[in-house]
Design a protein around this nucleic acid. Structure first.
Ligand SMILES: [Zn+2]
Ligand SMILES: [Zn+2]
Lengths: 535, 535
DNA sequence: CAGGCATGCCTG
DNA sequence: CAGGCATGCCTG
């Protein structure tokens, strides 16, 4: 019930509680009960919170479990159709308590590789492995004598909470940072204090580090604790990319919790970068959620919205079926030349984006006889369609007549015309006449080929050690010849629907690519087939 | 001697052997000797190879070492000014031997995530962790009774060869693939045979797996061995991204090596992808090598040629010192525009490659006084020879006179002239005069340096914790200065035949590379030597 | 330290 | 299984 709401909250740490009722069924009962003592005090505190987010079933479940402690596990399953809680998991809800316990993080560098940085909006600390992470502890009232601070790591996700957070085998074993250290397996260390104690609960095996609470230095209002995280969040065999929280508790000398404050932690090589990424993703997700709530839910977990390729990003855009939109990469040696070509390319791009009329506005002071047309080439040609654009000269023309071998004569008042239903792989010639100009004015002609269609039925009919013979069928529409390309080598022209590629190496896998060609220059969409040569 | 040749070979795995004589001095003698038994048989075989790339000094070194086994390490230094080998490293040169031992790899899927795939051109197996890698073992003659096959992993790079290849701590500890397994630490396993034996050399700690050799099945000409690699090449705390080789040996029952065949291995998540990438990079690198052969040679000994990126690979090339050479990628939308810009770019490239003279020839209709010459640069300079080319203007010239400080005056009727027998590392100035033109016509001058020769007798004369002092002899011919390079760091210039490299780390193996330089820009072929700093 | 490669892994 | 993200690390 509140369960569902919790689950819908994106990334909410509060969603932790929901797993109380969900977690796996393979824990023995004795184990569970053994864990109760400390968890109990925690739980009690949480339940007592006026605005506690703690799952209300918790208390109930716990009671029932306690009462049925003598029964076999199967019986407890009967109490509820849900599997029993796998283990009593430490609470992760914040609780300032009567001493007003709180944490603060310094504003820290946000450079890509900052050693440690904290995101307020995500309540998340990003830090590098084994580096100093200062955490400021604040109380409103002085806690009792002997009070301690405890830091406990815990997995954030429901699937993992019941697993104890440990260092990975590599970092446990390697000499670095482990000389004379008895707590090699502990993820969290406290730096700069001789009084830190490394503890492992004998029953749950959970590890934590404690430190006597100290008053703030004179004139300061908080006590700084220096934490070290001794593995990357990504460490294989350790956290293995699973996010964790750190639970900081203020406790009495006998481990009664007085206050609690939790924050997420990501130990990584580039805290600045990763914080930035995650904050941006959060913003994107939020922004999108407001506009297209339903769809986004699926995408939101996919983080990288910022991956859209920029001009220099060197990422090949997926050619989604439209030949026009295909992106190529021109390798250019040297920055100067690159900039030169980039300028040209940018200009061409601009040309493209600009409406014909805008271009005109910028460009010309010419006679109307210099009617403009768009260049007809493969790039503009499409299968069975052509887009025609032209420009008006400076004199007033009220319209244009289009004629040509497309059997589509028309009169236009605008400056563009799209001609549809052409045949692939054919030469068309179109004339554009200014209307209401005296016929002295020349028409402008555009000739262009439509893109040839794909060849069909590409097959390998013979494979030898050094030769492979291909056959295929003509494309729909026209073509002059074919182009056969072998794994990146130079094109070879074929004038029939059969071609033998020679001089291949034996026992090698080749890709053969065949396309129809018109005018020796306009290449249709290639069709590919692969084969090994024989050995 | 053949040593130098080996070093010049780009990417040659054979270049491994060179370090036999070069590697650091910090190994105890007992250790070395303890390693001899198996290494010994190996070494003998290698030395016996007709075309073996094996360092011929090896045998000698080894013998001496054996004879002086009782002496302290310092004594061995007297035998040769080079430090003794750090450890006896298993040979990695291929040796079919009298039984014609060979390996074959099935043509396998080349999809991105293929479980295992072998690159012939790189002699490299790409496979996923713990997956089956079939390796076909072939012999031409039946090996003796009791023959075994052995697979031993070894790091490819000189810096790592002496470290034993083991599984990472995580994969050793995790339950997966380790149930009931006593050889958890072994990287290489043999699948599908009860007779596989997992061995660890008690002295070197090197691990290997052996298997009795079996005849091919009836009708088959090879025996298939199924290998498993139990860690990724990237495994932290294990191979840690360092490339390895697998040494397959055919041995007698008492471990005398009968044949050897090695291949590189990359254990990774996406064998297909990574193979493709590396093959492409290799091709790119090769392409560049052909155009700028001499310069590239300096780079070649640094093993990872395949780290250099390629044209469509959309990878920004690391600017190896030359800003000019940086490769950029211009994203171009549409084939037409791409072709247009490509044409421009190609033209610019051509302009660049073309000598000024060639450009002229194509370009202009000028007076014959515009005699052309080829550009003299490092790229064209060779040791002791220079190739001169020029072009005739439009007017009729019947010949050319060549003069200059090469003491080779000649008259030519063609348009090229190769000047031989020049001295290395010297500046030459050559004039080309049109003959039968009135002297009003200017001659054209070419100045160029010949490549300096290799330095000689490179030696390490002092090894300290942070400094290493090198000496060498002048090259034949001329030179202005020397360049000393330490394991990929920036060049350091030296103006005498002695140089102390400072600021090194203690106990680390370094490669020192020294070459002669003229004009502060023309680098001769480097000579390499390796040494550990003392601890 | 920023850019960007290298490489495991997730997702459709 | 291909595409592409995730994340350590190298390089200038
Ligand atoms: Zn770790
Ligand atoms: Zn591993």
């Amino acid at each position: 019930m509140s369960d569902l709401e919790t689950m819908a909250l994106p990334m909410s740490q509060g969603s932790f509680e929901q797993m109380w009722g969900d977690i796996g069924a393979d824990m023995a009962f004795g184990h569970l009960i053994a864990e109760l003592p400390r968890a109990d005090s925690d739980a009690w505190l949480s339940a007592a919170l006026p605005n506690g987010t703690f799952n209300e079933n918790f208390d109930l479940d716990l009671t029932e479990v306690t009462e049925n402690a003598g029964l076999p596990a199967e019986t407890s399953l009967l109490l509820d159709s849900l599997p029993p809680p796998a283990a009593v998991v430490p609470s992760t809800s914040d609780y300032p308590g009567e001493y007003g316990f709180q944490l603060r993080f310094n504003q820290s560098s946000t450079t890509k590789s900052a050693v440690s940085t904290y995101s307020v909006s995500l309540n998340k600390l990003y830090c590098q492995v084994a580096k100093t992470c200062p955490v400021d502890v604040q109380v409103e009232r002085e806690p009792p004598q002997g009070a301690i601070l405890r830091a406990t790591p815990i997995y954030k996700k429901a699937e993992h909470v019941s697993e104890v957070v440990l260092r990975c085998p590599h970092h446990q074993n390697v000499a670095e940072n482990n000389e004379g250290v008895t707590h090699r397996s502990h993820l969290i260390r406290v730096e700069g204090s001789q009084r830190a104690q490394y503890l492992e609960d004998p029953d749950t095996k959970r590890q934590s580090v404690t430190l006597p609470y100290e008053h703030p230095q004179l004139g300061s209002e908080s006590t700084t604790v220096l934490l070290n995280y001794m593995c990357n969040s990504s460490c294989m065999g350790g956290m293995n990319r699973r996010p964790i929280l750190t639970i900081m508790t203020l406790e009495t000398h006998d481990e009664q919790v007085l206050g609690r404050c939790c924050f997420e932690v990501r130990v990584c090589a580039c805290p600045g970068r990763d914080r930035k990424t995650e904050e941006e993703n959060r913003n994107k997700a939020t922004a999108r959620t407001t506009t297209a709530a339903k769809r986004i839910k699926r995408e939101a977990p996919l983080p990288d919205v910022q991956a859209s390729p920029g001009a220099e990003a060197c990422k090949k855009m997926r050619a989604d079926s439209s030949v026009e939109e295909e992106i190529y990469f021109l390798q250019v040696r040297g920055k100067e030349r690159f900039n030169m070509l980039k300028t040209i390319n940018d200009s061409l791009e601009l040309m493209d984006t600009m409406s014909a009329s805008d271009k005109d506005k910028y460009r010309q002071k010419r006679c109307p006889r210099n009617l403009k047309k768009s260049l007809a080439t493969a790039g503009n040609a499409e299968i069975g369609a052509f887009f025609l654009g032209w420009h008006q000269g400076i004199s007033v023309i009220t319209g244009w007549e289009i004629r040509g071998n497309s059997d589509q004569t028309s009169n236009e008042t605008g400056l563009t015309k799209s001609i549809q239903n052409l045949v692939s792989g054919k030469l068309y010639s179109i004339q554009v006449f200014p209307v209401k100009c005296d016929r002295d004015l020349n028409s402008q002609n555009v000739s262009f080929y439509t893109l040839p269609d794909e060849i069909r039925n590409l097959n390998i009919v013979k494979v030898e050690m050094h030769n492979v013979t291909l056959t295929w069928s003509e494309p729909n529409g026209g073509h002059d010849s074919y182009s056969v390309t072998v794994s990146g080598k130079a094109n070879q022209a074929s004038f029939s629907e059969e071609y033998t590629v020679i001089n291949l190496d034996a026992g090698v896998l080749y890709n053969f690519s065949v396309c129809a060609v018109v005018n020796n220059s306009i290449y249709g969409q290639p069709v590919n087939i692969m084969s090994y040569t024989s050995e």
